[in-house]
Simulated scan of single mutants.
Amino acid sequence: MNRRLLLKLVVAALAALPLALPAAAADKVTVFAAASLKNALDAANAAWQTESGNETAVSYAASSALAKQIEAAAPADLFISADLAWMDYVAEKKLIKDDTRVNLLGNRIVLVAPKDKASTVEIKDGFDLAGLVGDGKLAMGAVDSVPAGKYGKAALEKLGVWSSVEGKVAGAESVRAALALVSRGEAPYGIVYQTDAAADPGVAVVGTFPEDSHPPIIYPVAILSESKSAAAGAYLDFLKSDKAAPFFTEQGFTILK
């Protein structure tokens, strides 16, 4: 076989081989999420990564702080707020894709105490919360900005006890920070979400606030207008799916979507 014919055969053989295409790079979804979601969302995200091969990077903080960061052009793909007000705030500034917004989860607020000092409290109109707190502090999220703090203040006002405890409130930067004050024994009582109480073995729920004592606790989610992630839509679909639901219900959230 002459060299020219051999060369033609080699070229033909190479042309017939399938092209080796590089594997698609995994996409990353950056999420800004309310601090109270941490345990449930971490578990859901691990399942999402296993299923899709895509990664998530989550920043947990008070919804108010996250909304302000989004307003300041912090790079993120999704926002999950612990109340409607802060989602409305970013929506009014055209910072979300309105057609992706959905009310995802619900929650309850509870009164917690250090586990070794817990006894049941009947939460009702005029209950003596000030007497229970005594010379200590009532740990809450900041009542003018953190959703859990706002819900807590609304409930205490409705029950007629806010004025008696207002001066005893230790306002924290997030609901998880308020929870930590109680867990460490730095505050005898705190108002947090029931999902936060379930996540910390150092506290016990001593009472649950009536649902009609405060506005409904709703966690909306939306894709941000400046999202660059091709996987953001699929990730949101996963959060709304039956596959993700158990990660939230196991922590005490209710499914709204």
Rank of each mutant, 00 (worst) to 15 (best):
A35F: 10
F79C: 05
V206N: 09
P188Y: 11
V29W: 08
A85P: 00
Q251K: 14
P201S: 10
P18M: 00
A15Q: 02
Y235I: 02
E166S: 14
A130E: 11
L159W: 10
G149D: 04
D200M: 07
L236V: 11
A76I: 09
D77I: 01
A172E: 15
D99L: 00
P114A: 01
Y219P: 03
A91M: 12
K93F: 05
N45V: 02
G252P: 06
G202A: 11
V175M: 12
V206T: 13
N103K: 06
G207W: 11
G134Y: 07
Q49S: 15
A85R: 07
S36H: 15
S183Q: 10
L37A: 03
S119E: 14
A43S: 14
K228C: 04
L138I: 10
N107L: 08
K168L: 14
A155G: 08
K97L: 09
K38P: 05
A199P: 07
S227I: 01
K228V: 06
A197C: 05
E250Y: 01
L19H: 07
W48D: 03
D135P: 03
L41G: 00
D237G: 09
T254Q: 08
L19C: 08
E122G: 07
L239P: 13
N107M: 08
K243G: 02
V206R: 08
S229V: 03
Y219L: 12
I70W: 02
A180T: 15
T249L: 05
K240P: 01
V133K: 04
V110K: 12
A74N: 10
A13H: 05
P22F: 09
V146E: 15
S52Q: 12
F209N: 02
A43N: 11
A43Y: 07
A154N: 07
L41W: 11
E166T: 09
I255K: 14
V110D: 06
A177M: 03
A234V: 09
A91F: 00
A25T: 13
V58M: 00
P220M: 11
A16Q: 08
I218D: 01
A34L: 04
A139W: 12
A72H: 07
K93N: 12
E51M: 13
S81L: 10
Y219A: 02
N2L: 02
E92M: 08
N54R: 00
V203Q: 11
S164C: 02
P114M: 01
L159S: 12
E71F: 02
T208I: 12
L224Y: 04
A232K: 01
G126Y: 08
V143R: 11
A67H: 05
A231I: 05
A130Y: 04
I217G: 02
R4H: 07
P22C: 04
Q194C: 00
A65Q: 12
L129K: 07
A44Q: 08
S36K: 08
K124M: 03
V182D: 04
E122C: 00
T254F: 01
K8E: 13
F253M: 02
G106L: 03
N45Q: 13
A47K: 11
L105V: 10
N54C: 06
V11S: 07
N103D: 15
A46Q: 14
A24S: 14
F127W: 13
T120V: 13
E173K: 13
F248D: 09
G141E: 04
M87G: 02
P215M: 09
P215Y: 09
M1S: 14
K240F: 02
G252Y: 11
A148C: 02
P18W: 00
